[in-house]
């Protein structure tokens, strides 16, 4: 489940990068969500400096870090002219500040690394909101953008199955990650519904008026 989750996460990022690169445009993509994701990776993968788990683990962490910053570069620099700034108006301080406060209050251990890890988990769970807000504001999304959102939504959903599996087989569970993972997946539910009922039937993702 974890491997499938990771793969679906990687596929989401590749879809997004390819979309921007091939169409030479980042229209419909929320730069703010991408900034939040880069923040998530940067604060979570600080453990690259302290803990070695496996080559797979290290490579994946580096990949998420580099691709998320590459995406930001494409949106805010290379294809800046195509960035839909007027529709990307979600106030991200409403996500950043509460996540930080929550991480300071509810964590496993009050240390810099641990609080930042917790912050990354909380922030990740809501990081997609600017993107979903943008889709709801414009009332539609290109098919490729919906494939990206679908793959990204599947990733945390698959992680929930991984957590159930780990709880059963290793008796390991991390309540912070589980609750945040559920919140994150629930946020995608509405989108999943539209994806299955519209995009998979060859229609464009268009919100009911």
């Amino acid at each position: 489940f974890r491997l499938l989750g990771d793969l679906s996460h990687v596929i989401a990022i590749i879809i997004l990068l390819l979309k921007i690169w091939k169409t030479r445009s980042c229209a419909g993509i929320s730069g703010k969500s991408q900034i939040l994701f880069a923040t998530v990776f940067a604060t979570r993968y600080l453990d690259l400096l302290t803990t070695f788990v496996s080559i797979y683990n290290t490579l994946m962490k580096w990949m998420f870090l580099t691709t998320s910053f590459a995406t930001i570069y494409l949106i805010y620099f290379k294809f800046r002219a195509t960035y839909d700034k007027n529709h990307d108006t979600f106030r991200i301080e409403f996500l950043i500040i509460p996540s930080l406060i929550l991480a300071l209050l509810i964590n496993h251990e009050f240390t810099v690394f641990e609080v930042l890890w917790t912050y990354s988990i909380y922030l990740e769970s809501v990081a997609i909101l600017p993107q979903l807000f943008m889709v709801s504001k414009t009332g539609e999304a290109e098919s490729i953008t919906s494939h990206y959102l679908f793959a990204l939504g599947c990733y945390r959903g698959l992680y929930i199955l991984n957590w159930i599996y780990r709880y059963v087989t290793e008796d390991f569970h991390d309540l912070i990650a589980i609750v945040a993972g559920i919140v994150q997946t629930v946020l995608y539910c509405d989108f999943f519904y539209l994806y299955v009922t519209k995009v998979l039937k060859g229609k464009k993702l268009q919100l009911p008026a």
Binding site: R2, D6, H9, D47, T51, V53, N57, M60, K61, F64, H108, E114, W117, Y159, N162, E170, F172, D174, A177
Partner: peptide, 10 residues
């Protein structure tokens, strides 16, 4: 041990 487990996930 708890934190070792955690670094494992992405």
């Amino acid at each position: 041990n708890h934190s070792r487990n955690k670094h494992d996930e992405l």
